[in-house]
């Protein structure tokens, strides 16, 4: 029996062959190591992300999340919902809070769900995996399981936007959250608490629709990592990871920079520090190879 059990909402990017399949895999490895059992919400749907509002409006958008919460309540009763994707977490929690505050909206959501014979009670806490790590498990316990400390690896903790705002992690500041740095330290790595771009926006969905404006911001995020002598950037957010990693070629071509900065997930750091191999840590999912992690994993 696993020590901790949660109802798991992976999200569209955390599926086989999707853009953060490397997060999905390393989260599975990390949870094995931390004795956490993730029970996937059966038949979950997209949360409509941070761009669904345009066509979706308010109620239809929120009802997308209502269906997921209702499925979780039905199949994984009494388990907190845990999301690994920032947008999934934000949308689901936002929906739950809106239904809590607005009785009419809650009533209408149930009216819509009834079309498919479903019902929402809306009593489930909606949490982020980072909360599980920091609040339920804690730095100390995480530190105890480290087999291969990430010694000498300098890591810029890039929290991004939606893991941090508007909800964030309890007790952490919106402007200067320290939990990724705390996590890096617990794993024996070198954190950079003064990484000034730790909560800078990467453009989010606008990286697709406004690539030039977004890549200008991404450039700043990477530049600051170099300025701080970072070996890599680590983030909890799948869209941050993708945006900051995959456009480095295009940014180099446009700005004449020579960026080659790996961008990894916290779950990959934990997997490697816990002694798992490169494959289990999904390091083959990096377009820009995280060589220092590969070296530790191969030791």
């Amino acid at each position: 029996m696993a020590k901790r059990e949660y109802s798991y909402y992976p999200g569209c990017s955390s599926q086989k062959g999707a853009s953060s399949s490397n997060m999905m895999k390393s989260v599975a490895t990390m949870c094995e190591e931390l004795d956490v059992q993730l029970n996937e919400i059966p038949d979950w749907n997209c949360c409509s992300a941070s761009i669904g509002y345009g066509s979706g409006g308010e109620l239809p958008r929120l009802v997308m999340s209502a269906r997921n919460i209702a499925l979780s309540e039905e199949h994984n009763p009494d388990q907190d919902i845990v999301a690994t994707c920032a947008a999934c977490w934000l949308s689901t929690r936002e929906a739950a809070e809106r239904f809590e505050d607005d009785e009419n909206m809650f009533k209408e959501a149930n009216e819509a769900l009834a079309e498919a014979g479903m019902k929402l009670t809306n009593k489930t806490p909606i949490r982020h995996m980072a909360e599980v790590l920091i609040e339920d498990i804690g730095y100390e316990e995480i530190g105890k399981g480290v087999k291969k400390p990430l010694e000498g690896v300098k890591i810029a903790g890039y929290v991004g936007c939606q893991t941090n705002r508007p909800f964030g992690i309890d007790g952490e500041s919106y402007e200067n959250p320290m939990y990724l740095d705390g996590l890096v330290d617990a794993l024996g790595g070198d954190s950079i608490p003064t990484y000034e771009k730790k909560v800078q926006c990467c453009g989010g969905a606008l990286a697709f629709s406004e690539p030039e404006k977004s890549q200008e911001m991404i450039k700043g995020i990477i530049e600051a990592a170099y300025d701080n002598d970072a070996d890599m950037i680590a983030t909890p957010c799948p869209l941050c990871q993708a945006n900051v990693e995959i456009y480095q070629d295009q940014i180099n071509a446009k700005y004449g920079t020579k960026f080659d900065m790996p961008v990894v997930y916290y779950s990959q750091l934990i997997s490697v520090a816990y002694g798992r191999n490169a494959n289990d840590a999904a390091l083959n999912g990096q377009i820009i190879k995280a060589r220092k992690l590969e070296e530790i994993a191969a030791k």
């Binding site: 409006g57 239809p60 929120l62 009802v63 269906r67 209408e108 819509a112 079309e115 498919a116």
Partner: peptide
């Protein structure tokens, strides 16, 4: 089924 749910939500809104 999902489309039915969302259609209803759109109608209500």
């Amino acid at each position: 089924d999902l489309q039915k749910i969302i259609k209803k939500a759109q109608e209500l809104e």
